[in-house]
Design a protein around this nucleic acid. Sequence first.
DNA 1: ATTTTGACCGTGC
DNA 2: CGCACGGCCAAAA
Length: 114
Amino acid sequence: MLAGPTTFARRVVAVTRSIPRGRVATYGDVAVLAGRPGAARAVGNIMAHCEDPTIPCHRVIAAGGDLGGYTDLVRKKQQLAAEGVTFSGRRIRQFRELRWTGDTPATLRRRRPV
DNA sequence: ATTTTGACCGTGC
DNA sequence: CGCACGGCCAAAA
């Protein structure tokens, strides 16, 4: 078999792909969903490559609802805006509601209801 | 095998 | 609100 991305990297991409349109997830959230709590920084490293445009890497933001990094921040903002996400400077509005932490029966308990 | 690097995160000032 | 610091982790050097 050909050498490819590590298991971790692939899981990160899979999680990123699962983020619904118009919703966002922090690097830390993705790390948790990928099975490596605390690996937020490592997630950022992987996202930095993000060659494949079909991967919604613009939905991965920084903690607290901050826009976070991106190769082209202006574009990241535009892409999110195109999905209905609004901002207040670098801060995403309605972060509490838009945040997606994998709303599944298993993970729902981790977050408190709005 | 060891060191360096980064689209991070929480805390403190 | 902004900035520095230390801690974290996986990938690349």
